[in-house]
Design a protein around this nucleic acid. Structure first.
Lengths: 252, 252
DNA sequence: CTCCCGCCTGCCGCTACGTCAGGGTCAAGG
DNA sequence: CCTTGACCCTGACGTAGCGGCAGGCGGGAG
């Protein structure tokens, strides 16, 4: 099975020029030439090219790719495992970015200003370990958050308006309940906490009681969220937190 | 809040040189300068930089990034939604690559040789249209193939073992039928062709009669597949091809 | 006042190709 | 047999997105 440059280029989705380049720098030299000097690629060359393209897509410099591929201490299975791992790392990274975007959406919805550090904690350089711990602490369950992303991406303007309206209606009612002086573990307050949970579940992601209490704790831990609720009504952040916890316990 | 280049570089995880470059090409010019000519970045500049870095990480050329960011017909929420969508597309892409790697791992375990087309159907910077056309030609329905990918990626080791076993059992039986000398359009052969179709449907993708005959033709057209069946028993490739066609006609 | 760190503006270099230019090759058709 | 068009070859230059250094100014701590 021999292939010309053009055939290889077509099947692999690269340009002929790129294949010339790989030949020039010795990254991928065809196993032979025709008498006329035409490059002839065989199946082994194609396999090598496949690996080259894999690492290239992940952004590795060509020189490094050569080193990886030519590593004598790596059997085919080891390569596959390495590639698999690289991919999952990348996916994790992108999912973190998704989470960050979601966070920014949430913040902009509540009109919260992001600090410079927050702006760039996911973009730019970022330390993987530190960041992962941070994300865990923040969201507890990243799968729930991804679900949210999947849904939110499909919302129309009308959907957003409805969400806003529902949210504001809920806001007015909990302010009223707070003002009426009933305790946070009263049926009225717990009912509104439950409604809060259901709004999230309906519009964003499946919000279990556990996730809900985690969210409530974040509202207390993160000053910007605290302030958001405090600005609506003094004491609301703590009141809501308590109501959510009480609601979660009573339904468990 | 004003920041110097160095400060911005540090918090954003980019080099000072890169910021100089962005200034040079007009992608991100600081909102002001000190009397001494020092660049001064404010919060709005940081926000812009955040977007720049986002699109940069996804591989957009800087010129295009400028166009995207300066698009007057896009409010902040629209940007966030767009970014979100881009991310999910990327994640899907990477997950497809994971599927392909897993497929390759299994193939290498079962000692199955990959065709060149299979090698590159996921890698390479693949032209969506051309690629889809190619996949269409090969698979009849590209959605079916994606469905296959989605399913295959969730198979456990036990599933793979069962598939292998089912496949080998089917292989033994069709070899027996072939050896018995009954024609390819006999009920026995057609029944095995039908079973073949159902194995594919059960484990990989919804395999209509049309797709099935397309597959059968590929078995004949592609030497690798032909040899795979010829190695099991001489004449099997053509026999199976005929049986599949006969089966499709009789059930239509 | 001095020292050192940070900032400035060129300018050259690098990677991974894109894009001609100028010229041979091969299979099909007239 | 000869032509035509698609395909191949080797330079050689251009481009994007910076990295890195040189040579010189600014500014706050000691």
């Amino acid at each position: 099975m021999a292939y010309t440059v053009g055939q290889v280029a077509k099947v692999a989705g690269v340009t002929v020029r790129a294949l010339h380049h790989y030949d020039e720098i010795g990254l991928l030299s065809p196993s032979g030439r025709t008498p006329a000097g035409y490059r002839r690629y065989d199946d082994a060359d194609l396999e090598r090219l496949q690996h080259v393209l894999f690492y290239r897509e992940l952004g590795f410099p060509l020189e490094e790719i050569a080193a990886i591929i030519d590593d004598p201490a790596a059997d085919p299975a080891a390569h596959l495992r390495r590639q698999h791992e690289l991919l999952t790392v990348r996916i994790t990274r992108l999912q973190e970015m998704v989470t960050a975007i979601e966070f920014a959406m949430e913040a902009s919805k509540l009109n919260i200003q992001l600090t410079p550090e927050e702006r760039f904690e996911v973009f730019g350089d970022f330390n993987p370990e530190e960041h992962e711990a941070e994300a865990e602490r923040r969201w507890g369950d990243s799968e729930a958050y991804r679900e949210s992303n999947r849904r939110v991406s499909r919302y129309s303007k009308d959907d957003w308006l409805r969400i806003k309206e529902e949210n504001e209606d809920w806001g007015r009612r909990i302010v009223a309940v707070l003002a009426s002086g009933v305790p946070a573990d009263s049926p009225e307050a717990m009912e509104l906490a439950e409604e809060h949970r259901q709004i999230i579940s309906r519009w964003f992601y499946e919000c279990s009681y556990e996730v809900h209490t985690g969210l409530a704790d974040m509202y207390m831990a993160d000053e910007r969220f605290t302030r958001h609720y405090e600005d609506i009504a003094p004491g609301l952040a703590a009141y809501l937190n308590e109501a959510i916890h009480a609601n979660a316990i009573s339904r468990a």
